[in-house]
Nucleic acid binder design. Structure first.
Lengths: 335, 335
DNA sequence: ATAAGATTTTTACACGCGTAAAATATTTTC
DNA sequence: GAAAATATTTTACGCGTGTAAAAATCTTAT
């Protein structure tokens, strides 16, 4: 920078000001700098910069599993929002492994992030660690909520979205059974089950919950094996199944196909299957999957802007804010 | 570090040595340090560290599109390999946008990576930029090759894998037509087309290539709309279609289902569809997709270790090495 | 043209750590 | 137990930038 100052005829402190905020120098100066920049292609050493800055411009993004299209999509939006706001996002996936989540947060500490956008697993075991991390850095949670931790939460209103789906299914045919994993990795699963119970109660139908054994992130495998078994056994009390998420539904649809069961809302169909999340592949299942679309973009952008606001005002907000977006019904062929 | 040196009773230079390589200090000293570390939880400032190190321990990983399960899976393996080798991976997705690839490389420059693992789009337009980047940093390419650039390439042998599939399809039924995008985003697509042509020639069958219009990364959409149109029109000269990749096949399968065409190798089937890549969802299509499995893990690990070797010897290899892994046939129900 | 205000330059120190060289302490070897 | 080999400490400098304070320069309004 010393050298660049020499050849560009600008003093080093002014250059420093320019690189921190191009608008903080006089217009004519900025133009001179940019002219010189186009010739000498100098760029500040980011390590020296971050060493001296009080806060870095880095933002950590941590998601449970990038292999899940839901997270790869939502983190894409988050990432672009960070870049647009002038921050440097650092995307970390926990690869479906809750222990990795802690390691990721630990790794983030060493880059001294300005803030963190975290979609937590939401298990009890990691709660304390996240709370601690949230005290040390500004953190906005998304997708999965941990009531006791961090500045804010942005997600989908599962009560509303499940109720919407139950309502639709009840109006258009038999009331739904509910299919989920026995030990879900995500608090949303519990919210959805409760929402189903409440909604069925409100509609005056008895609930029927079916829980699949198995853990991990191979939801399709579990949906296919366990769901297929339930179908084959004729276990479902009604001809309609609401799956806790699309990936389970995708597995179950493939099992139904293998069993020769015709799924859909047509007259010749004997089974209806619905999901939740509007997974990218739900348009291409056979039949295409009726589901609930979460507003990915809205969730991602609000989470990001909420964090940015915290960073700019530099004051931790006095009270925790939770924002829930509504899901929308996507009527396709499976239910 | 000064303070930590004081309270731990170890000199700062020794601590510095320890943090760069815990084994470079005497055993007893290391234990004293680690005991103190467990009490005071000090950690080196990574920015000060990287400012002074000749080379950082950062490794950039750039993939065209994390939303594509192929890349999310392979980059997961690559990422873990980097961590296991003591490096700090930085995962960047170009979000399906070739221009973003250049921006990602540009962003990587400022973190002065020790090396980069790059799965390029492979378009002509970015060639020069990648070559230039490859001269400034050690880069190992994977998935898509650019003959003229970087240290090494690791990928799948498309000629072998396509031949394997063509061989199987010819043995088990009518010889395949080939379905692909007209203007593919990836050089592998061209390799596969040529492999198909050669293989059909070798088997003594006339080739039939069908190219879908459309660009971008919505392969399923294109496979569904264009592939569906071809099916409806009875355009395919044989009853067997080999798709250039699984995502096209997934789209085409959904179109076939909508058209009421029974796909598979059974007696009652009128159409066979095969893919390439063993996409995570190919097990759950209806019917499940016969395809070629790439050895994700082998490709990812070899790419990573090849880069590490370059970094450790500190010498750019004299000649470029290309390694191709063989694909394996995954026989499922669709063909 | 001139004074007030805004911007830039000069000067200087700080950040936290890598690293080199010489002195000292510790361990190993015979 | 002494000498040799090894490890640690001391001392000092450098990395590339942020930032503060005072001086110098430029811009704007009168």
């Amino acid at each position: 920078m010393e050298d660049f100052a020499a050849v560009s005829g600008i003093s080093r402190p002014t250059l420093s000001k320019y690189f921190n905020n191009p608008d903080s120098v006089r217009r004519s100066t900025r133009e001179r700098i940019e002219r010189a920049l186009s010739i000498y292609d100098y760029r500040p050493n980011i390590y020296a910069v971050n060493q001296n800055r009080r806060r870095t411009k880095n933002i950590g993004i941590v998601v449970p599993n990038l292999a899940d299209p839901f997270f790869s999509e939502i983190s894409r939006v988050v990432e672009l929002a960070c870049i647009a706001a002038g921050y440097s996002p650092l995307l970390l996936s926990s690869h479906g492994n809750p222990a990795q989540e802690g390691q990721n947060l630990e790794a983030l500490r060493s880059i001294k992030p300005a803030g963190v956008l975290l979609a937590p697993f939401g298990r009890l075991s990691e709660r304390a660690e996240i709370e601690r991390f949230g005290r040390d850095f500004p953190v906005v949670l998304f997708d999965a909520n941990i009531e006791s931790a961090c500045e804010a939460f942005v997600g989908t209103n599962n009560a509303q979205s499940i109720d919407l789906m139950v309502e639709y299914l009840c109006r258009s045919g038999e009331p739904p059974c509910f299919f989920e994993m026995k030990s879900p990795t995500n608090p949303n699963a519990n919210k959805r089950r409760n929402a189903y119970l409440e909604s069925m109660d409100r509609h005056g139908f008895p609930p029927h919950i079916y829980q699949a054994k198995g853990d991990g992130w191979d939801f399709e495998v579990i949906g296919s094996s366990e769901g297929g078994r339930l179908i084959a056994d004729g276990a479902f009390k009604t001809n309609t199944v609401l799956c806790s998420n699309d990936r389970l539904a995708i597995g179950m649809l493939s099992a139904a196909y293998k069993l020769g069961r015709k799924v859909g809302h047509g007259a010749d169909c004997t089974l209806r299957i619905a999901g939740h999340d509007d997974h990218p592949f739900s348009r291409f299942t056979c039949p295409s999957l009726t589901t609930i679309a979460q507003d990915y973009a809205a969730i991602a952008n609000l989470a990001a802007t909420t964090l940015f606001k915290t960073l700019e005002t530099d004051a931790r907000p006095s009270e925790r804010v939770e924002t829930l977006f509504e899901g929308t019904l996507v009527m396709r062929d499976s239910a």
